[in-house]
Design a binder for these strands. Structure first.
Lengths: 255, 255
DNA sequence: CGACGGAAGTTGGCTGGCCAACTTGGCCGG
DNA sequence: CCGGCCAAGTTGGCCAGCCAACTTCCGTCG
């Protein structure tokens, strides 16, 4: 079996991984079945065993397969959204669920960074930051309030975007601002007066909060954000194993 | 520089990773400094470049360093708890924070699995499961209610444990029950009457919920659990990058 | 019939080497 | 003085091979 066209960008092992991912998801190896041996896959794809192992490491990190020395790999689950871009971008996430994302800029101010902001964005004292407050909607209904602090270099670009632009990350990428690494913290807070007004809930009612600090490949912080979701609209899901872990966000439907 | 003693179990690349992790955390390369080249590290540790790359992949997944083709790696953050075991075991997590974990078994019943439980634990209709309800404490104060469903093979062992045993996962491991992969879902729920009584909060007050399904290396589910935390006691933190992601749990202190 | 032992199969780990893609910084020319 | 080009340095990716550790299964022996 050959690797057709360009099922995944660039590297060979990504193509192999994509192909295997699809095979697993479509049930080619059975529900809890076993994968072919690494050597067999290597021959099948016409690549070295090392390349196959790189591909399998990706699937392992996504929780699709287990692996244990001595036995063939076992299919664990199937079909997981690609985690990173979906977690980072509200817009991307919403679209992948078939919902129509919306956003309304409530305020955008420019002011000196306070101590906490300087710490998070690694800025010199006196540096000015851009602070946005946005209400995010899913097919018209408000679900989230987003407070984001940008360093000057990024904020200047954000300030020039039209106020009704849906996605922020996409236009930023075109200006050379790359989002590659993020730290997230998830907890519960109570709604402030502003939150309550925007989300149409009672003041003090619980909200699911995600704090996020994003950096580019050089380690420079590009964003510090605090998102507050109405309960029942989202849940965060993570797979982890002794080897690695992967995160995604999804809508709440089941219980 | 040689790799002293047994800083990490088994494999060479883990030892190198552990050593580098410590060096980064102790600030040997500066706050946002750059790491030595892979080749230099390989020579330093007396291993091949491939092994160094395996080690660096671990640090990358933990969000300690970035990497980009063409330039040296950059130190991103520092000091992250080892995610998997800490997320899985309340006991392990509590101890790593210097708190004294406690637990009290409220109830343990054996009954036929319902449809949802059969689905999660992949059981045949009519199979019996063991269901536990435990109150978890941190240095004496209640923080979490844990409802766990075990398949028969595991439940039989759990039922034989003394009711005041602190850790469940440790004795299970000694009986050959291995926890290697887990899927987590995090959201917000309101406290039931039971929750409220055990956690000394009002009924209907918000709780941070973590649902968890754990499997062993063969893909067999060994546990399905639902933990409900009092707000302000924990937060979940995740690092993710274009390459991979890592998860941990930590106490809430800052804001 | 059951327990034990060994062989075959499989993954984990490590080496050494090679080339491509990319970044950075310095040199040189306009 | 600025801009572009070029070379060195660095990471990404791939290959071929080797051995160790572990699991599974089958055949043999008691």
């Amino acid at each position: 079996m050959a690797l057709d066209q360009d099922r995944a960008a660039g590297s060979l092992y990504r193509k192999v991984a994509a192909d295997l991912r699809e095979a697993i998801t479509s049930g080619s190896f059975g529900e809890a079945g076993r994968l072919p041996a690494e050597g067999a896959l290597a021959e099948q794809y016409g690549v070295s065993r090392g390349t196959v192992r790189q591909a399998l490491a990706l699937l392992r990190a996504d929780g699709l397969v287990t692996s244990r020395r001595g036995t063939r790999r076992v299919v664990l689950g199937s079909a997981r959204v690609q985690s990173f871009s979906e977690l980072l971008s509200f817009t991307h996430w919403a679209r992948s669920m078939g919902e129509e994302p919306g956003g309304r800029l409530e305020s955008l101010v420019r002011r000196p960074a306070d101590a906490a902001e300087r710490e998070q964005l690694r800025l010199e004292p006196g540096t000015e930051v851009y602070v946005t407050l946005r209400l995010r909607t899913l097919s018209g209904t408000p679900v989230m309030v987003e407070r984001t602090v940008y360093p000057p270099r990024v904020g200047e670009l954000v300030a020039q975007l039209p106020p009704d632009v849906v996605s922020h990350t996409e236009p930023l990428r075109e200006h050379g601002i790359l989002f590659t690494d993020a730290d997230h913290t998830i907890d519960v807070v109570t709604a402030s007066a502003d939150d309550a007004r925007l989300l149409s809930c009672r003041r003090g009612s619980p909200l699911l909060r995600e704090k996020r600090r994003t950096t580019d490949p050089t380690g420079t912080p590009v964003e510090w954000s605090q998102d507050r979701y109405l309960p029942g609209t989202v849940a965060f899901s993570i797979h982890n194993s002794l080897a690695s872990s992967a995160l995604s966000r999804h809508a709440r439907d089941e219980d």
